[in-house]
Nucleic acid binder design. Structure first.
Lengths: 368, 368
DNA sequence: GGTATTTAGTCCATAATGTGAACTAAATAC
DNA sequence: GTATTTAGTTCACATTATGGACTAAATACC
């Protein structure tokens, strides 16, 4: 982290700064970029020239009219050259997608597959084929990187433990075809997906309700992973010390109360069954208690409920919010905002691709 | 945060890099600094010259012998020019200290004071006098900044709520004498104190046991404050949903079980009373439950127990560790290390001074 | 004791990069 | 049709890091 800053690093950072403004603030003229970044027009022009040559941005012919003065040529992100490959292994499916720099999904495929009963090697081989198919659909794009979302704990090119897949210590640094791939936890990537493709703010806690319950912590636009990459294991936060036994060997973890298996189906809820509503109420209160602890520890500005919680949000949110308001009321001006995820079931794959694109945007010079 | 990098910023960063190596790795020759930082000898010499002129480092006459070649002149931190003023308001005392750049405490004073019953303005006036006294004891030092530790939530020059002082929304951006001061939460600063003056690693959770229970979260050598600066409110993590009423209006918060008022005195414990040991056991189990949740959410590498937990550590640690091991066993290779704080009751004031010194070390050019 | 070797540190010409003033370009305003 | 305004480029310059040559000061070897 503590690298010396040479001219190259100065240039790289300023390239990232300009590209970041273009990515965040829509098409911008060089003059506007100079204003926004604090760099001179000269420098911005030089930086933009490099970005144009790299195919990361494109110029629109100036069309703005009505104001005085020479119209500027707008610079916008170019989706034509660089893209990212996002992959996901889930308990019941494999997904692959190609997303270009403008966050347009160029290709996407899912196959159903019962990965519980399959060897990791076979699953990765099937995923590799799927990746080949989506890549064939977008042949003109240069893939800047590949990230794989897995429902488990990861670290350093290793899937430590994916309980619902039954995997332990599976090393994944490349697909069978040789394509290098980085693995990352599904909840973390779903949080990133929500950040890049949803409308989440720069600080939030993304709660991923699946069979297990994970969380991705976004702080100032970046992921918090913890000392060993295990942060966000919300499913095993203590709800009741002596509660029902959890799969983890302990008792009274959140997962027991609010995991997918403890929740009614959206259909049952829509049908208006009273016991379905009661189950949601119970799960919501447990989730509220666990989130109370998480909020006290982390202080996220917003809580985003994702995964299987999205269709249940109208039933879950009231008890969750009630518990939060009740227990946090005296401690802070207002409890964090509670919102449903804006991205659907593809949050994690999209987040996987987004992680690659973020790197490109932050350090465009690495693409040359 | 997204500032352009100009020559000045490049220089500033490299100055910080060199100074950081000198601060972290003891006295070092220019040649060793070039090796460590990756900068050339030429550049290092130039940077060191600036740091010497600023009085931030000093040269020792080369004394190393026994090896071949010209001996290098060692560069070390200089404590003679720049220092920090750390202040603390506590429920029963005021403290001020001057700490120089080498982390030597040049002056320190505490006065007992029942700040519960006093107006904030009067407390700050008394603190200002105390500050004047310690500054008079170290007249040759230039104070690079002042930080004030308070037992409450802070943000943006405002003490939002300090429950045990009875303060709400007290604006503090300067002392009555006009000296600018930054306020920060006591637990956060104690964590920083532990980081700089103790032997804590770069990732840990510091638990500050006082009347309330706070926590400072250190991640990669920096503090995590949360979206609104309220992270680390460990005292109100849920231990038992329907437990005893807490001062915060809720029930079953950790503070009820493991706050100072729920703990026996070290004397009672040393005397061997069985009910004192049982109280520790109870508190320890509650702390273990709350820490389980915190570890699941944050994944700190180490947990440091500070404040009133230090003398009780031999009694508290076993139940805490037992609960952590029991509840986290299946989820991670090993539960986080559990250690007592190495710094004493001055952790927060020292941390306050350390916060200033860290800034100086990170951006020495700001001192000119 | 003298010379070779080794390591530390400085000097200086050079390269990379951002700056800022002057200039050109292209629009609207009057 | 000319003035004004805004966008963008050009160019001389300032800052800073680099790298090889050089000087300095120690030990190793003969």
């Amino acid at each position: 982290m503590n690298q010396p800053v040479r001219h190259g690093a100065m240039r790289a950072r300023n390239l990232g700064l300009v590209l970041g403004e273009v990515a965040g603030g829509g098409p911008l003229t060089r003059a506007a970029l100079a204003e926004l970044t604090g760099l001179t027009k000269t420098t911005v022009s030089s930086l933009v020239a490099d970005l144009l040559a790299a195919g990361l941005v494109a110029e629109s012919p100036a069309v703005r009219a009505g104001e005085r003065g020479r119209p500027g040529t707008e610079v916008r992100l170019s989706g034509g050259r660089v893209a990212a490959l996002g992959l996901e292994v889930n308990v019941g499916s494999l997904t692959a997608c190609v997303v270009d720099l403008t966050r347009v999904v160029r290709a996407r495929r899912t196959v159903r597959a019962d990965n519980r009963s399959r060897e990791p090697g076979r699953v990765l081989a099937a995923l590799d084929r799927l990746a080949g198919e989506v890549l064939a659909e977008a042949p003109s794009l240069r893939i800047a990187g590949t990230v794989l979302a897995v429902p488990g704990t990861v670290g350093d090119g290793l899937i430590h433990h994916a309980p619902h897949l039954g995997w332990r210590d599976v090393a994944v640094s490349a697909l069978p075809s040789g394509r290098p791939v980085a693995v990352e936890n599904e909840a973390n990537l779903a949080a990133l997906g929500e950040l890049e493709f949803g409308d989440a703010p720069r600080d939030f806690l993304y709660v991923s309700g699946e069979i297990g319950i994970g969380a991705g912590i976004v702080r100032d636009g970046g992921l918090l992973r913890g000392a060993t990459g295990l942060a966000g294991e919300l499913g095993h936060v203590v709800v009741a010390e002596g509660g029902p036994a959890c799969r983890c060997g302990s008792r009274g973890c959140l997962e027991v109360y609010a995991g997918q298996d403890a929740l009614p189906s959206p259909e049952a809820l829509a049908a208006g069954g009273p016991e379905a509503a009661a189950a949601c109420e119970r799960a919501g209160r447990a989730l509220g208690l666990a989130l109370t602890s998480a909020v006290n520890v982390l202080d996220p500005g917003t809580i985003v409920l994702g995964g299987c919680y999205v269709p249940l949000f109208p039933w879950l949110a009231p008890p969750v919010a009630a518990v939060l308001a009740d227990r946090l009321g005296a401690l802070r001006p207002a409890p964090p905002a509670l919102v449903p995820a804006a991205t659907g079931p593809d949050a994690a794959v999209l987040g996987a691709a987004a992680r690659v694109l973020r790197r490109v945007l932050a350090d465009p010079a690495a693409q040359w």
